[in-house]
Design a binder for these strands. Structure first.
Lengths: 217, 217
DNA sequence: GAATGTGAACGTTTTCACAGCA
DNA sequence: TGCTGTGAAAACGTTCACATTC
């Protein structure tokens, strides 16, 4: 089964679309585990609560993966999406701030399963430094450049409290990190242009409180 | 200082705008703590990395809070945003799934500071049930309706692993919860129309792996 | 003069509707 | 006939530019 894949520039796909591609991928994984072989845009889109036309438009960013009149081959589409999403590669990350959030992150099942591996954990707490967690020694941040270099680390995860986020970000960039996932309640201003994704739990909670305040029936 | 506030329907504000309003609010808190009294749309918008015109348009959803030629009163605008975001109210929540993520959530500083209070923690693990954490006894899910009723709980936080998310969601709705924050790697299908916000750490990580795969220089 | 508030222009994302293919 | 892939249309969100107000 050969499909055209006309030198598309996957870097131009909007972030919203990427996030939906991941939803499709997850739904396909699920279908795959149930042994489903074929799926239509209608059925797959229903699984992830989007319109069928949107699913098809999203896929159109990437190529042509279906067969008119038939639908999509679950395994083939799943593989293609994994490829586009970079899930066929193993990625290494370091984590700064080994508090509750950092701990939860490292233990989070889904992350390991998707091929993301911790290669370094950093904290400023003297009591934590030197401890070993899941085979990784918790280090002082001064060891960061060495670890990033030695283990070919691309990703930095920031789970420090409050304002130390910025200085950690600076140090990660200096060490050679090119993409950051930021849980710190701070808007990072990177010295160099790199990719930053932020998760702000308070912000999501506030959408709830806004809803509750104004949607009383 | 009296401003018009012409019976606007805050429930119609798009979620993207709400999230930016929260950013403005956070930046204003920061200014307030530094003793700043007045701020212009230009300066405030720069703090949160948006265009001044966007900040003004966002505020236009809510009313008129500034003075032409002068700017905004920091304290006044901050208060108004807090009101719109529902941060002048105390909200009660319950949490299901007291693993790493649940633990991190309950301990997360920002949540408590913003007026969100835990009123119940649930887990299926026999060993955890009966333990007391920060004054809250960890219970079996069967106690949920009682606790929701007694403590006037509006929010449910789902931090269970994998697929038990859906059944927990059902039970929360049955118990009277009207807004859910979902960390489970599952798309919830609520039996009744309620507000659901999802945080998916894997999804955010995947935007990083996509970036790294296709932006090599 | 300075900075807000807003209609109009612009750009992006979603949806529609159907041509094209198995 | 059934379902994909895609232009065209609609909806939505952002930016511009300036009239308005202090």
């Amino acid at each position: 089964m050969v499909k055209k894949n006309d030198n598309r520039d996957f870097s131009q796909i909007p972030r919203v679309v990427i996030k939906r591609l991941f939803k499709y991928h997850s739904a396909l994984e699920n279908l795959l585990s149930k042994g489903t072989v074929k799926v239509s845009s209608k059925s797959l889109s229903a699984d992830v609560h989007v319109k069928a036309s949107q699913l098809r438009k999203d896929l159109a960013y990437c190529g042509e993966f279906g067969t008119r009149g038939k639908g999509y081959d679950v395994k083939y589409l799943n593989g293609k999406l994994a490829e586009i999403l970079g899930l066929h590669t193993e990625w290494n990350y370091i984590l700064a701030g080994f508090g509750h959030v950092g701990h939860a992150f490292v233990c989070y099942e889904g992350i390991f399963r998707k091929g993301f591996n911790v290669k370094g954990i950093f904290d400023i707490d003297e009591k934590k430094i030197g401890q070993v967690f899941r085979g990784i020694e918790i280090c002082d941040i001064s060891k960061m450049p060495e670890i990033v270099r030695e283990h070919n680390v691309q990703i930095g995860v920031i789970t420090v409290p409050f304002d130390s986020g910025q200085s950690v970000c600076d140090k990660m960039i200096e060490a050679g990190i090119t993409a950051i996932l930021n849980f710190a309640p701070v808007l990072l201003k990177p010295k160099k242009s790199i990719f930053i994704e932020r998760i702000d739990i308070s912000r999501e909670l506030v959408t709830l409180s806004h809803y509750l305040s104004h949607h009383k029936e």
